[in-house]
Design a protein around this nucleic acid. Structure first.
Length: 469
RNA sequence: CGGGCUGUAGCGCAGUUUGGUUAGCGCGCUGCGUUCGGGACGCAGAGGUCCCCGGUUCAAAUCCGGGCAGCCCGACCA
């Protein structure tokens, strides 16, 4: 196969490669205000697929969608000490509106714990109102000095779930349920990314949380990316906002709340987890376009065959499109490859003469010649195989770039090109300081069997250590 | 906040040192034709507030003064 040089190669310059993919796959542009992002139709189609999959899982977990305002009174943030301290550097604040200075500044939401807390307090009266399970799809603003499209932008899109429960145990188990059944399931089984599920060490927790659960994925350059977070907020916000309920025996009790989110950063994770030197690679179950049908030569006969092949694929449930009338064959091939579409169906005069078509897989470039009658069923099989193959390959890459170590020095060395696993009790505050000094951090704590601990004080926990985005 | 750099077509840039006719190149874009099994080619076109304001001059993208915007590094923050 000829090697295209449409993109900078990953080995030459990984950040440049990332920018090239975002631009050439037509996913996003920089907005006019530094740090803002214009999400283009193809990038947004991928985000919509993520939304659909996540929304279905969120609803299956019993949460309902609602919407809370973009503008939040500044005084709300002051009510929870750690929260305000954690967020104040990145807040955008409106001080002037309607032609006049405002008496109280208004914060553009960086997250909605505070407003939602205020209304939960209003809505929750009795134990019969619990659990209260809410979610919203929204944009948030966190002012960023070093923006990167999808990974870190001053405005981004996400969902944020907020729940209130009667007991610590209920809240903790709901946060864990979202962590595993919504996020980890989506990331592994749809995105085909073998993320590690664990909890954050205390210093990496969300501002105001008592425990933060995280899914951490390895990118192809060996760095970690946090794909989702789920927080146990304890009674911190419930106390600050007066979320109290009357229990069955008539006592007044303070709720236990959770919050959890996943953002357009997932799109960045998708790019860096699977992408190769030919561009993006989108797993079939996530792909907004699963197959593209291309006429090698745009004769009427060939175009007719493309039309019926496309129709057959769609009837079989494959998200298929035809690309025609748009430049040379080679150009179209390259363009769809950069976009990461899982299957490319090529039909030319030679194929047509034999009543066959050529199917090319995006992941390994393998070509299969299939009879036109069998094409749809073969395509379905190839999509399934590719989904499994992507997860298997990413898992192998992750494991090969993960090293068990016993000293901090070895951890730092291993973190230059991947993940290091070290016993949590070997680190401590000073160990984390040493890591942080060289831009390495504890990404998550796991049990030895890879499951998610209840808290950082469990015995025998493993710290996964890496550089991160 | 400190230091450095940049602003010229949609994008990337040259031209500015040494002022001079119609501001140029690559990619992209439009039309026509030939092509088409891994980023095609030819011909013909469209597209400009040379960041802004002022000054010097017969003449300013180019020189002078002021302003604005952006980028990089550092600091700050996490």
């Amino acid at each position: 196969m000829a090697s295209p040089n449409a993109l900078t190669s990953q080995d030459d310059d990984f950040p440049r490669w990332y920018q090239d993919v975002v631009a050439k796959a037509e996913m996003a542009d920089n907005g006019p205000v530094r740090g803002t992002m214009v999400i283009r139709p193809y990038g947004y189609a991928i985000w919509e697929r993520m939304q659909n999959e996540l929304d279905a899982r969120i609803k299956a977990a019993g949460a309902q969608n609602a919407y809370f305002p973009l503008f939040i009174p500044e005084s709300y943030f002051a009510r929870e000490a750690e929260h305000v301290e954690g967020f104040s550097p990145e807040l955008a604040v409106v001080t002037h509106a309607g032609g006049a200075d405002l008496t109280e500044p208004i914060v553009v939401r960086p997250t909605s714990e505070t407003v939602i807390g205020e209304f939960m307090a209003k809505w929750v009266q009795s134990y019969r109102d619990l659990p209260l399970l809410l979610n919203q799809w929204a944009n948030v603003v966190r002012w960023e000095l070093r923006p990167r499209l999808f990974l870190r932008s001053s405005e981004f899109l996400w969902q944020e779930g907020h729940t209130a429960h009667a007991s610590y145990e209920e809240a903790a188990s709901y946060a864990r349920r979202i962590h595993l059944e919504t996020y980890l399931d989506f990331i592994v089984n749809v995105m085909a990314v073998p993320a590690l599920a664990g909890i954050k060490p205390p210093r990496e927790r969300f501002a105001g949380a008592i425990n933060s659960l995280t899914c951490e994925a390895m990118m192809r350059d060996g760095k970690a990316l946090q794909m989702s977070t789920s927080h146990e907020l304890g009674q911190n916000f419930a106390r600050a906002f007066g979320i109290v309920f009357q229990s069955e025996d008539g006592q007044s009790e303070v709720c236990h709340t959770t919050s959890w989110g996943a953002s357009t950063r997932l799109v960045g994770g998708l790019i860096m987890a699977h992408g190769d030197d030919r561009g993006l690679v989108v797993p079939p179950r996530l792909a907004p376009v699963q197959a593209v049908v291309i006429a090698v030569r745009e004769d009427n006969d060939v175009l007719d065959a493309c039309g019926s092949v496309n129709a057959a694929l769609q009837r079989a449930g494959v998200k298929s499109v035809i690309d025609r009338g748009r430049g040379s064959f080679g150009r179209r091939v390259t363009d769809w490859e950069i976009k990461g579409v899982p299957l490319r169906v090529e039909i030319g005069p030679r194929d047509l003469a034999n009543q066959v078509a050529t199917i090319v897989r995006r992941d390994d470039g393998a070509k299969v010649v299939v009879g036109l009658n069998d094409l749809a069923s073969t395509a379905l099989t190839l999509l399934d195989e590719q989904q499994a193959q992507l997860l298997a390959l990413a898992t192998t890459r992750r494991d090969e770039a993960t090293t068990d170590v016993e000293t901090i020095e070895d951890a730092i060395a291993a973190a230059q090109s991947g993940f290091a696993r070290i016993e949590w009790r070997h680190l401590g505050e000073s160990g984390e300081d040493q890591l942080n000094e060289v831009a390495v951090s504890v990404r998550c704590l796991q049990r030895p069997d890879g499951t998610t601990p209840q808290n950082p004080d469990e015995d025998n926990l493993i710290a996964v250590v890496a550089k991160s985005y």
